[in-house]
Design a protein around this nucleic acid. Structure first.
Ligand SMILES: [Mn+2]
Ligand SMILES: [Mn+2]
Ligand SMILES: [Mn+2]
Ligand SMILES: [Mn+2]
Lengths: 252, 252
DNA sequence: TTATAATATTAGTCGAGCCTAACTTTAAGT
DNA sequence: ACTTAAAGTTAGGCTCGACTAATATTATAA
């Protein structure tokens, strides 16, 4: 063999579907997959056999389907590509949700690791750069609506100056350190230090979450536990006590 | 029939190849296409028959291939999608030329008209917005190299302020009107008025080249004729006398 | 527990898109 | 004009990924 790897776009979609279904229903049945991908039963059976051969799913006839460790890793990577593209299409290009969704799911199969990294980084940069941020993205929206007018830029640039001074000498205006467990949904912060230990620490370091990396809180469950965060394009769900071990400097 | 349209990714690539080869060699031979797409002869013959059935190419056995009017239009649209993606990947994400090229040629097949429009507009916006421009893109490059530092932003924002004032009250600092025929390669300008008549005028208006639209000069031939310009994602080649009918306000 | 409905699998078909091997046509050189 | 090389086509085969129709299994409910 040369490199028996390289899944087809089709098989990637099956794997992606299985992961998504698994996340909400525990395990995937053939019917679920069939519905999710709009294909008929026999197509699913065929795909499952191929995926089982490649050790990406646990599959026995008439039984439910689950991902192997390897399969899960691959599937998560596909979802990551999907989400990175979705973020770009929806949040940056500001296409409507449906277009962003279906386009992302087609493009995802042609995005290499290096392109993915750049894309994630780019979307992050659009949001984080003091010249950019939501203001900048809104400027694009305004530009789309109103021909080629840049008249929203003046107030924006003033905002940029403020943002910038916070980034540069954060020591005076806003050194406020805060634990990740105390932050509100939608807020963001740059990692100051990681007090956490064990699995969480390792997981964060594996993601390249070094001090300075921006963390965004996506959702906090009713009792403040668990906390869903986004970091370098990854989604992560942390228990409150785990989140308390991560010290941030608040942004914006 | 419902809509016998919708070319496969493969056929789109054949059409794209034929256009590109035609542009440099007048007409495409089977061999050229075969080489361009890295497929063997019989694959080309098969594809050509399908394209001929759809009235997209003129094809007779053992003869050279040319595009029909319809085929040319479709091919040009594919190239436009390719180039829009390439611009984004190469100029904005700043991926290396090869990655940008091959990725664009895969992604192009899943880009709808509306996504294309947004993407073209976005790349344009990144370059034109006074908060953005090359400085902003360079900021992204710096951010990629140096972890997550935004320390290049200060001088950039000052530059932004200057750009902005030119955009807003261009009457004082730089109302300089100039004919498109007098501008240098790499320079850009916003359309003030279109004095041109006839075909060129119509062609420009069809592209939606209204006053305010940004035009960039790509190349000027040795004798100043013809002039290659980029406008709203389209490439356009104008004779000097045609270009003289377009009045611009210089930018940056 | 047994009938019935819901799910899943098998078997066989089809088109797209590639290939190799063998043959035909065209172009070039002598 | 004749020979030969290059280019192009035909014939036939293969994989992928979908489908339908028929069959088998499992779940459900009387
Ligand atoms: Mn997909
Ligand atoms: Mn997807
Ligand atoms: Mn392509
Ligand atoms: Mn292409």
């Amino acid at each position: 063999m040369t490199s028996a790897n390289a899944l087809s776009a089709s098989l990637e979609d099956y794997l992606e579907a299985i992961l998504l279904i698994t996340k909400t229903k525990g395990a995937a049945r053939s019917k679920d997959i069939s519905k999710h991908l709009s294909v008929k039963g026999p197509s699913v059976t065929g795909a499952l056999r191929l995926l089982a051969e490649k050790d990406l799913v646990h599959y026995a006839p008439y039984d439910v389907v689950t991902l192997t460790a390897q399969g899960r890793a691959v599937a998560e990577n596909i979802v990551k590509r999907h989400e990175a593209l979705h973020s770009f299409l929806f949040e940056v290009l500001q296409l409507d949700e449906q277009t962003a969704e279906s386009t992302a799911c087609q493009l995802e199969h042609a995005i290499s690791e290096s392109v993915l990294e750049r894309l994630v980084r780019f979307v992050q940069f659009v949001k984080d750069c003091p010249r950019g941020g939501n203001n900048w993205v809104n400027g694009f929206a305004h530009n789309c609506d109103s021909g080629a007018s840049y008249d929203v830029c003046e107030p924006c640039i003033k905002q940029c100056m403020e943002n910038l001074s916070r980034y540069q000498k954060g020591g005076e205006t806003d050194t406020m350190q805060i634990k990740l467990s105390e932050i509100q949904p939608g807020e963001r912060g740059a990692i100051e230090s990681i007090e956490a230990a064990g699995t969480i620490r390792r997981r964060l370091l594996d993601m390249g979450a070094t001090p300075g990396t921006v963390v965004e809180v996506e959702r906090v469950a009713p009792m403040g536990d668990p906390i869903d965060v986004k970091i370098k394009g990854y989604h992560l769900s942390l228990r409150k006590e785990e989140a308390a071990g991560i010290v941030l400097k608040k942004i914006r």
